[in-house]
Design a protein around this nucleic acid. Structure first.
Lengths: 156, 156
DNA sequence: TTTACTGCAAACCGTTTGCAGTTCC
DNA sequence: GGAACTGCAAACGGTTTGCAGTAAA
């Protein structure tokens, strides 16, 4: 768990490239369909994490006949494979994080819901004081705040 | 009880008592109905945080005619008043945390979904390395793991 | 050719809401 | 007495699923 937080050097915060991803998927006997390729492209292109609906919207622009159900199915498969992280921070729909390579945390805008990656601070070990018998296998940190865009936006 | 962890001394991890809570609510012009009192009692009695449905179940035992809609309405009001914290850690329904007095974090069982409070470790400040222009207003830490009960349970 | 994947639409679950009736202050 | 609350049931948004057709390997 959380190996060497001091060692975190975000050389490539975008994670693997599309071709990397597709190659790994092919290696796992995944059938590469136009729909799946397009979804992989959409995910790869974003560093703010999208909702399933947003993925569908963007995928639709590249492949108009893609269905929302296929987007959900594909996202779930990627999550099950460990190639995608499901993040549900606060209310609203889940968001999907393609950066599974480097351990990191998240920054959420309380106004618009935008979700971004953030490297954790150097501030030492993050461990529960009293695990109460739990076998702890992971830690997630969510920073809440207001993103620059919302901070600048007129209050409407 | 884990002594000497910095300034955090959980003298009363259960938070305010029922009467405390009801008194504060009355002070806010809240109409105290049987339904609301029962919901407050159920929340207060628990230190593992319940889903709305679980609150309804327990409240139903004390007041059989209480409706799920009222439970939801009441929980939302309490959240809006700041007397209750809404926590959605991972999939499944939201859970409600009556401990708004002491800052703390959460321990989630990845098997059964149980959600418990946990004091944060000694490392005081947790801050993002690069806030990317966000005005950060809060931090939430979720430790994932397996609770003692699930760890002990036969794999069925 | 075979089997996995797709799209559609209906089902699903947790949650919210409109409204008529009730009850607390 | 009157405004606030309740219960019901219907609606809702996000997500999953059954099934017949289609296409990747």
């Amino acid at each position: 768990m959380t190996p060497g937080l001091g060692a975190f050097v975000p050389r490539d915060t975008r994670g693997p490239t599309i071709s990397d991803l597709l190659e790994r998927l092919r290696a796992r006997q995944w059938r590469v369909t136009p729909q799946r390729r397009v979804i992989a492209e959409v995910l790869d292109g974003e560093h703010v994490h999208l909702t399933a609906d947003a993925v569908h919207h963007q995928a639709h622009e590249l492949l108009p006949e893609i269905s929302l159900a296929t987007v959900y199915n594909t996202l779930n498969e990627l999550v099950a494979m460990g190639e995608l992280l499901e993040v549900s921070a606060g209310p609203g729909p889940k968001r999907y994080d393609p950066n599974v390579r480097f351990p990191h945390h998240h920054l959420v805008c309380t106004t618009c819901g935008t979700l971004r990656d953030v490297a954790s601070g150097g501030a030492g070990v993050v461990e529960p004081a009293d695990p109460q018998g739990f076998v702890v296998t992971g830690v997630e940190i969510v920073y809440r705040g207001v993103c620059p865009r919302c901070a600048a936006a007129p209050v409407a």
